[in-house]
Simulated scan of single mutants.
Amino acid sequence: MTDTTDTTATGELAELAESIFAEASGTGTAFDAALWKTLEGSGLARLTLPEAAGGSEGSFTDAAAVLTAAGAHAARVPLAETDLLAGWLLHEAGIALPAGPLTAATGDLDVADTAGGSTVRGELRRVAWSRAAAGIAVLTPTRVVLLRPEHVTITDGANLAEEPRDTVRVDGPATTAEIPPGAAEQLRLRAALGRALLLAGAARGALTASVTYAGQRIQFGRPIGKLQAVQQQLALAAAEVAAASAAAWAAAGAASADGMTAPSTRFAVAAAKARAGEAAGAVARIAHQVHGAIGFTREHDLRLSTTRLWAWREEDGSDAEWNAEVGAAALAAGADGLWPLVTGRP
């Protein structure tokens, strides 16, 4: 398949994703079961997983098209958790994937093996979408564990965007397997990549809403979008959105081309999560400045984007953590290796 064909296919996938998420956009906070059914029917719910795991065998670039659209429309589904994280981890560990949405977590659970199987005891905090999940894939220090809903107790929690971030307690049977080589690092990078793509999408959503509002809000006899000060702020926000999107898509491209564990991918993912997080703060600030007081009300849809920007920038590694990793990689590369590291070319 040629690069042109790949680009065309990804563009068509992006159009499909945009149409699905735009139609499903809503202001609720609960899991969107109808949207999830559509995603499963269109093959987007497990896009990058192999066919043997019920997936569509897409690339990380394909995932970029879908996740940025999901972020832009504040989709209320565990898409990255199911596809990039839990589905991948369970398949790599040789555990059959349950049907339906999945989520993933890391934690130190007590695992005991008996003649009848494994029993697990412990607590996991801030587990995304656990109350909607058909299975929770957990990476412990010694095992990969699949928890089923009937064997856990969930205490509801939420992030700033009111997305589920629950406390999960387990004391009962579970399916376990040995940890695949390099699983911890790859799971960390996959989570950061997925979050960077969602952030880039949410930033685009906030910018789109701000441009639309600036064209509609009349002040001093004309739309505020005609005022030079407002135009300058929107231009700054657009630059931040472009930078975040470029970094996130570059990381997805590196993962597709070189594999998730390649040094080039690790550097690209670190840069993408850091840059998207930095953009999140700037875009949210400008969006609320443009909207004024109305943008801070619960009734206004702007909060769907900006609360996600604020919440997601702190999840899966903060700006400071990933910037430190970028800096360490640059120092390790040295003067001769810095340019190849940044450009991905020798």
Rank of each mutant, 00 (worst) to 15 (best):
A64I: 05
P346N: 12
A235D: 10
A324Q: 03
W322M: 02
P181I: 15
A255Y: 10
A45G: 09
E15Y: 11
V168C: 05
L207N: 02
L341E: 08
R222T: 11
A104H: 08
D83P: 01
A30I: 08
G26R: 01
E240P: 00
L49A: 11
P50W: 09
R266T: 04
Q233F: 03
H288E: 02
W312E: 00
R285E: 00
R266H: 06
T38H: 13
K273V: 00
A174C: 10
L147D: 00
A257G: 11
G215I: 15
A74Y: 09
H91P: 04
F296W: 15
A332M: 13
G221D: 14
F21R: 07
D156Y: 13
G225H: 04
A270F: 10
D336I: 08
V111A: 11
Q186R: 08
S130D: 10
K273P: 01
A237E: 01
S56P: 08
V230H: 06
I179K: 02
A184R: 14
A279H: 00
A45E: 05
G116V: 15
W339F: 15
I136P: 10
T176V: 12
T155F: 12
A333D: 03
T153W: 10
A161N: 00
G157M: 15
G221H: 13
G344P: 14
D110A: 13
G215F: 13
F220I: 13
D336L: 14
A33E: 14
A250K: 09
V290G: 00
G54W: 10
G58T: 06
E150A: 06
D6M: 09
A271I: 07
H288I: 01
P101Q: 12
G194L: 05
T38A: 14
A203V: 01
L79T: 09
E315P: 07
G253H: 12
D3A: 15
G117I: 03
R298S: 03
G225C: 05
A183L: 14
Y213R: 02
V211Q: 06
I179V: 10
A158P: 08
I136H: 13
R190M: 07
A70H: 13
E57V: 09
F296H: 14
R143G: 02
G182V: 09
A161P: 00
E12D: 15
Q233R: 08
G43P: 07
A214R: 08
L67Y: 07
N159K: 01
A132V: 10
D83N: 01
T38N: 12
E92Y: 03
H91R: 08
P180F: 05
G292A: 02
L187P: 11
A52W: 13
A311E: 02
I179C: 06
E23M: 15
H300D: 11
E57W: 10
S56T: 12
L304P: 03
A252Q: 01
A128D: 07
L49P: 10
A63G: 14
E325K: 14
A248C: 15
A14V: 06
R195L: 06
T175M: 08
R126P: 00
V145T: 15
